[in-house]
Amino acid sequence: MRIVLHIWRQKNGRSSGKMVRYELPDINSHMSFLEMLDVLNERLIEKGEDPVAFDHDCREGICGMCGFVINGTAHGPVRGTTVCQLHMRHFQDGEELYLEPWRAKAFPVIKDLMVDRGAFDRIIAAGGYVSVSTGSAPDGNAIPIPKDNAELSMDAAACIACGACVAACPNASAALFTAAKISHLALLPQGEPERHQRSLRMVAQANTEGFGACSNVGECEAVCPKKITLENIARMFRDYIGASWTRRPAGASRG
């Protein structure tokens, strides 16, 4: 099949980018989207041109490295999938595709379709953990956890931090990512002790990084390859609002 690509080419973070047109006349419809780009890059290298830079790692849809915007939709037209698991058979012969990097102030472009998602790491470092004492592994089922909570926590933990939610949000908000990372811990007894502090710190870090605010349009939920839901964002709001008004500063335990 024939595919026409318009790809965002940007040399580095300081230069300004532009869309460049490439034509691939002989693409196999069983190829994944990234394999199609591999073919393009091999030909660019043969011609002595600079290949298109894009992030990828496992190519199994579970690592969260890959991702860019295809025709205005993060991870392309198929719901619940990453670009590495998107196959060319979902496109028409002769289709024109516009590939752009995640666009957000907090995700500066490194090169072409590659962005720096270090802001996500700093949100996790701000509170996305549980402080546990190390030692031997605890007994299984020593802490009872309701089945529903275990399932909801696992659903939130499915977030692979790819950044599609930020890319799809009209406000470049990291609400869905932050909410997923807050939720999967908040729903479990192990996460409960630091629940308030965690929501305050992670939300504050997301604001510091320059992500926008959530305006409940739901575009993040629609493009999320792991189908993380808006319910998690409401849980984050609930925790944050509660923590803001009831948190006691250190050393003031008697209130």
């Binding site: 318009h6 965002w8 869309m19 915007v69 025709n71 205005g72 939709t73 719901r79 516009y98 752009e100 666009r103 957000a104 102030k105 907090a106 799809a168 009209p170 406000n171 470049a172 908000s173 320059g210 992500f211 926008g212 349009v217 739901g218 575009e219 939920e221 629609a222 493009v223």
Partner: peptide
């Protein structure tokens, strides 16, 4: 938070 716009923008939901 979104200084540069997408060349192509579409909405899913």
């Amino acid at each position: 938070a979104r200084p540069s716009r997408y060349v192509r923008q579409s909405w899913v939901k």
